[in-house]
Design a protein around this nucleic acid. Sequence first.
DNA 1: CTAGGGTTAG
Length: 389
Amino acid sequence: MKEAGVSPNVVTYNSLMAGATRGHTLSKCFDMFEVMLEMGIVPDAWSYNTLIHCLFKYGQPDEAYRVFNDILLQNIYPCQTTYNIMMNGLCRNGYIKNALILFRNLERHGYIPETMTFNILINGLCKSEKWKDTMKLFEELQQSGFSPNAITYTTLMKCCFKHKHLRKGLEIFSEMKNKGYAYDLFSYCTVIGALLKSGRTQEANKYVAFMIKIGYQLDIASYNTLINMHCKAGKLENAFNLLNVAEESGLECDIYTHTILIDGLCKAGNIVDAERHINHLNSMGFYCLVAFNCFIDTLCKLGHIDYALQVFHSMDVKDSFTYSSLVHNLCKARRYRLASELLLSSIKAGLKILKSDKKAVFEGLTLTGSVKDVQTFKLKVRVAKLLNY
DNA sequence: CTAGGGTTAG
């Protein structure tokens, strides 16, 4: 543009800011905003929307809120999108309450929310495990004059599946189909994924058949779902064949693809290839925590707990799955002392622990340790929890 | 410029 003698305007810089946000750089987005100011170009609502979105996306809710307040003081009027971005950003940074307060305040000032606004809040409520409030808002959406769409239904379904309400989730899928929103690839992947996870292979196959019949252009996420289906059935060869099909159609496999295949290899008992695949990923600079978790869990189940511990200690990042697999399997192997130490470490790391793991450790210690040991351990757990909250 | 899908433990 510069060479052609064309001067950039506000739209040019808005585009650059949006691109920077997608390309994962907060600083670049800011740079573009500043260059725009230096050039004497006046930012518009779009510029601020993008800036606010970028700040939320990269975990700076306070700054985002400051920018929002700044524009209220200027002559720039926030639009529907501004408010949507605010509510979405608040939800994603753990401020669902504030998002709802903003929503209700806006309503009082005559703001009419659209389907997307509801979807943002429904998603936020789902993620913060508030099922009743979620359904209340869903009711509100239906009475608002706007209609729920495929995104609304998929969000609700995923929330059901996450909380093991498989039947309720399938009911929502039926409702969605009856209302004519079923021609949607995302919703099929959600349903199939949930069925596979709960071991309902037959039903999963049924929906896969529907999905194929509709004739969607499959993307990598849907291929991952199908590859997972073959892995769960123990048909590794089919899984790898499908991987080839995906790659031949120009798709690039991602971290999910690798993880699904590694888990498939593990579950098929092929720990040699699973480890090879993990090392291959590492050598390319990918650290895949979930794949490590699958590997550790399988090692434990096959009785190689000490090797699992070795892998565990070599890991830079661990999560509740990593700890839980080891704690559970150490208990099964009656190695309660070590299990209790790991359980304590995970609490200290601020991770969520399973009731079943805690129970197994307590019962194991009670069975094999002295009463004093058990009491000391309980005290340590309590202290660790207090320090976390 | 903003909303939904796909991977692991129990």
